[in-house]
């Protein structure tokens, strides 16, 4: 669903109009999708799985994905522009909670179903999106809580 939506004419036209020159797609399980750029100046590459998406995510200017927590957090950590498209085929997918909360804080954009991407206006609405940078948390917050709960002095050992 998502793959069709981001390779439709509407989607590719928008990408070209925004100056994107290359589109990489990890399609996961299932058959390799047949995608044509229809003469548009955008290079499309597909792969099923890479051991790590890290290198491609670092190079990307825009990342479009489902709400998987791993992908979402990695994209935010790399301070990338991220659009999360809800996978309506999954029932009770609690990972949407995380993406929703991050969207509410302005760190990413959320699209509630892939069909929305058939509409040119959805794509145009991405034009002005400037995410608020995700700063990460206080790493030792948990250690401080646990130390105090167990009665360890909270002072750092020298």
């Amino acid at each position: 669903m998502l793959i069709e939506a981001i390779t439709s004419k509407v989607a590719l036209d928008w990408m070209v109009s925004r100056g994107y020159k290359s589109l990489k797609i990890q399609y996961g399980k299932g058959k390799e999708p047949r995608i044509e750029s229809n003469g548009l100046p955008i290079a499309i590459e597909v792969y099923d799985f890479l051991p790590s998406l890290d290198a491609d995510m670092r190079k990307a200017d825009l990342i479009i994905s489902h709400a998987g927590a791993g992908t979402v957090m990695e994209a935010l950590r790399l301070q990338k522009k991220l659009i999360v498209v809800i996978n309506t085929m999954l029932m009770n997918n609690h990972q949407e909670e995380l993406a929703g909360a991050m969207a509410e804080r302005g760190h990413l954009l959320m699209v509630e179903k892939p069909e929305k991407l058939d509409d040119n206006l959805t794509w145009v609405s991405f034009n002005d999106f400037e995410p608020i940078v995700y700063e990460g948390g206080d790493e030792d917050s948990f250690a401080i809580l646990l130390d105090s709960h167990l009665g360890f002095s909270s002072k750092k050992a020298d």
Binding site: E135, G136, G137, S141, L145
Partner: peptide, 11 residues
């Protein structure tokens, strides 16, 4: 429960 900000900074 107790809340920590290990991953999510407090607002």
């Amino acid at each position: 429960s107790k809340v920590v900000s290990t991953f999510v900074p407090h607002r």
